[in-house]
Design a protein around this nucleic acid. Structure first.
Length: 291
DNA sequence: AAGAACAACAACCGCCAGCTT
DNA sequence: CAAGCTGGCGGTTGTTGTTCT
């Protein structure tokens, strides 16, 4: 089957950077007709661009609400974690950062974060690249580059988030029975974390970079955010690290957790990280969609 | 000051899934 | 059911700006 490229005719189709004039034409057309039916955009506007180019220009650059410029440490953290969980599913990752486009995130990953993460993971590089021999069959193994896992994670991403968690919820835990459940749970965690209007999300002092935390990590294993201050406290196990992540989702505290999870995920190879996630034995949350 | 090397980012390309005919 | 069309996605390339030598 297959289909020819939408711009296959080539003749008269302009390529390369968009001019301000073209932008104006495109924006004014979309303001009148709304986005969509991209096929008709070049025809109706006289733009010598293919429909695909128009759509990309709109979604990646002209669309209202797009945030440009430097990524905050908070955004960095989200991208790093979601990339570890989902792989290069930029559209899915972008859905957690509505102000950023998938193209932006992809570029930022390729130019900044990939190197950064690689640098931080260097000591564990060997083990990172060699999944356990039973990786394919093991229900507890998660590969960040596995396409099947991606599908599972996307299913999780698409699930609506249960938005209300009472702060005094009784916490019981049962491990997810498969990768999909784990991925869903983690995806929901991230979604809740990123969406909630909490002090952690809005307090600059809580936006701690991974480097910041890792510099401190030798001295103190946990990091708690109270009011506007980040407080390093005593030892923290992997399971309690996750509890710290879950707690604010539950609305129970203002524990600053993202950098903890960052550290927790990046410190180990992904399989172990997911094992740790799935092997939580301490109580954390009761909602059935979580664990 | 000039050229080379590198980094950042916008845009393109090819493939795919889903829908329509 | 097959073929065609559209929108969407991820990988890659090209261009521009910046830093280094």
């Amino acid at each position: 089957m297959g289909r020819p490229p939408c711009c296959d005719n080539g003749v008269g189709v302009k390529k390369g950077p968009w001019t301000p004039e073209e932008d104006i034409v495109l924006v004014s057309y979309i303001q009148q007709h709304g986005p969509g039916n991209w096929r008709s955009v070049p025809e109706n506007t006289g733009l010598m661009r293919c429909s695909k180019s128009c759509r990309l220009r709109w979604t990646n650059y002209l669309r209202p609400g797009i945030k440009r410029g430097n990524f905050t440490p908070h955004e960095e953290g989200i991208i790093i974690h979601l990339q570890a969980l989902l792989g290069n599913k930029w559209a899915a990752i972008a859905s957690y950062l509505p102000q950023r486009t998938d193209n932006d995130i992809k570029n930022y990953w390729n130019t900044h974060l990939k190197k950064k993460v690689k640098r931080l993971q260097q000591p564990a590089a060997d083990s990172f690249q060699t999944p356990p021999s039973n990786a394919v069959t093991s229900p507890n193994y998660y590969s960040p580059t596995s396409s099947s896992s991606h599908h599972h994670n996307l299913q999780g991403l698409q699930q609506p988030m249960n938005s209300s968690y009472p702060s005094n919820t009784t916490c019981t835990a049962s491990a997810p029975s498969n990768n999909s459940e784990a991925a869903t749970a983690v995806s929901n965690l991230f979604q809740a974390w990123t969406m909630r209007p909490s002090p952690v999300a809005t307090t600059a002092n809580c936006m701690i970079t991974m480097q910041d935390f890792q510099e401190e990590h030798d001295a103190a294993a946990s990091m708690v955010c109270k009011d506007d201050q980040v407080v390093m406290t005593g030892d923290v196990s992997r399971s309690s690290a996750l509890e710290m992540v879950v707690a604010p989702v539950m609305g129970a505290s203002t524990t600053a957790t993202f950098s903890l999870l960052e550290d927790w995920l990046l410190e180990d190879m992904p399989g172990q990280a997911m094992d740790g996630l799935m092997g939580i034995s301490g109580g954390c949350c009761a909602d059935p969609i979580m664990f």
